[in-house]
């Protein structure tokens, strides 16, 4: 088993919370893990990405080779496209459709969506809206993670356990909100693609 994942977003959107959840689940499943993070200058409103690699065998490189990523998980639509050279032709592009506009020349939404749709395997969802409907606008990242969960190669229960563990300090209510967000994202992804049972 090997999954190479690019996490993408804008500085401040908290992509590392997704990485931490997948990482915790992977470690509990006894898998190897490497995760290259972004620190420093690029954190303020600039583009950020993280390379997350999990495998049942020893991992060599901290960086995912171009064209070999199994998945891009992005919390922002334009950012999801920035890392296309990393994605394998069979890879999944899972992205939020809610744009984060802090630049003047942000592309038109329609053209952006058309580019996303060019990727044969993609899931695009408005995670912010789904999270808002659940009454927890802060858990949009967990909605995205839920949407990626059918393709992660990690047991869904392991992911839920990881969330319970990570948020346990903040109380049961917070755990439940995040688990609901995860499930809502997962449901939406399954609705969009009804993938083979590979989870």
């Amino acid at each position: 088993m090997k999954k190479d994942i690019i996490l993408a977003g804008v500085g401040g959107q908290g992509i590392l919370s997704i990485a931490a959840t997948i990482g915790t689940a992977a470690l509990n499943a006894g898998l190897h893990l490497k995760q290259a993070e972004v620190h420093g200058m690029s954190q303020r409103g600039g583009d950020v990405q993280s390379n997350l690699r999990i495998s049942d065998r020893e991992i060599a490189s901290d960086l995912i080779p171009f064209g070999k990523a199994d998945m891009i998980i992005s919390v922002e639509p334009m950012e999801s496209l920035r890392y296309l050279p990393m994605l394998s032709p069979e890879g999944w592009l899972v992205t939020n459709t809610k744009p984060y506009i802090n630049i003047r020349n942000y592309p038109e939404m329609e053209k952006l969506m058309a580019e996303i749709q060019l990727q044969p395997r993609h899931i695009a969802l408005d995670a912010d809206e789904i999270a808002r409907q659940l009454g927890s606008p802060k858990s949009a990242n967990m909605v995205i993670l839920g949407a990626a969960s059918p393709f992660l190669g990690i047991d869904y229960q392991q992911l839920k356990d990881a969330i319970s563990r990570i948020f346990s300090k903040k109380g049961e209510e917070v755990v439940k909100v995040n688990l609901d967000a995860l499930q809502a994202g997962r449901d939406e992804a399954i609705r969009q693609k009804a993938p083979a049972d590979n989870s």
């Binding site: 954190q43 600039g46 064209g67 070999k68 334009m78 394998s88 032709p89 630049i103």
Partner: peptide, 17 residues
């Protein structure tokens, strides 16, 4: 060279601020 799809031209830079 296993490089995947090119970055679409509409993707613009997002400098830190």
């Amino acid at each position: 060279d296993t490089r995947g799809r090119d970055i679409p031209a509409l993707v613009t830079g997002r400098p830190p601020s």
